[in-house]
Amino acid sequence: MFMGEYKHNIDTKGRIIVPAKFRTDLGDSFVITRGLDQCLFAYPMEEWRVIENKLKKLPLTKKDARAFTRFFFSGAVECEVDKQGRINIPASLRKYAVLDKACAVIGVSNRVEFWSETNWNTYVEESEDSFAEIAENMMDIDF
């Protein structure tokens, strides 16, 4: 399980350190792709296969299913951690998530998310104001 929040800088070549606590569970090779809320999602290979199998079962006749699958898979790349504990994030993914310098790397249960620090701070500020309401709504789905 991934949890915690870490601050790291992305360099001009698109390299960022993956926190040591995350590297063990992500493995030497993992998948990173466009996520929701303008961040990137990173999944260990085993978890990626589970998601891939679920998405394969979506009906091809549903427009939203096709759109989500295209969005999710077209941005996906396999990353390998170098000897310094860094990965290289492709330019298209850096542009999508606005990763240019200061970044937040967070653990979210079965995945790791990469955020621009500015976007993460904004998201946290906006979410804090409505956290009680969000929690109340979660009770409706048997949380």
Rank of each mutant, 00 (worst) to 15 (best):
F72N: 02
G4P: 06
K62Y: 10
P44Y: 02
K62D: 14
E78M: 08
L60R: 03
I10V: 07
D64M: 11
E5R: 13
R23S: 10
M45E: 15
S109G: 00
G4H: 08
F73E: 00
S74P: 04
Y6V: 09
W48D: 02
F68W: 06
K57G: 08
F71Y: 13
N110G: 01
E46K: 11
A102F: 02
R111P: 00
V50G: 00
I17S: 06
L60W: 01
S74C: 12
S109N: 15
E5I: 12
K95P: 00
R49P: 02
N53W: 06
V18L: 09
I106W: 06
V81S: 03
H8V: 08
Y96K: 04
I10A: 03
S109F: 10
L55K: 05
D64F: 08
F72H: 02
R66H: 06
V98S: 12
I87T: 05
M45G: 03
G14M: 08
R23F: 12
A42M: 09
D64Y: 10
A20V: 09
G85H: 02
F30C: 10
W48C: 08
N110D: 15
Y96G: 00
R49W: 00
R70C: 13
T61H: 05
T12A: 15
M45W: 04
I51Q: 11
T69H: 06
K7V: 10
Q38E: 07
G4Q: 10
P44D: 12
A65V: 03
N53D: 15
P59I: 00
E78R: 09
I16V: 15
I87W: 05
E78K: 10
K62R: 14
D11V: 07
K83Q: 15
L26P: 01
S92I: 09
R86S: 12
P19K: 06
I89K: 09
G27F: 13
I87F: 03
P19A: 08
C103A: 11
S74H: 13
D28Q: 14
N110T: 15
T24Q: 11
K95T: 11
Y43L: 12
R34F: 09
Y6K: 04
G107Q: 07
E52N: 12
V98T: 07
T61P: 01
L93V: 03
M1T: 07
P19I: 04
G4S: 11
T61S: 14
V108K: 12
N9W: 01
R49D: 14
A42S: 14
V50I: 14
D82S: 11
L55M: 14
S109Y: 15
I51Y: 03
I16D: 03
F41Q: 05
R23C: 10
I17P: 00
M3C: 05
D37V: 00
L40T: 03
R94I: 00
V31E: 07
G35H: 03
L93P: 01
E78Y: 02
T69R: 07
K101G: 00
S29F: 08
N9S: 13
R23M: 11
K7S: 12
F22E: 13
A42I: 01
E80K: 15
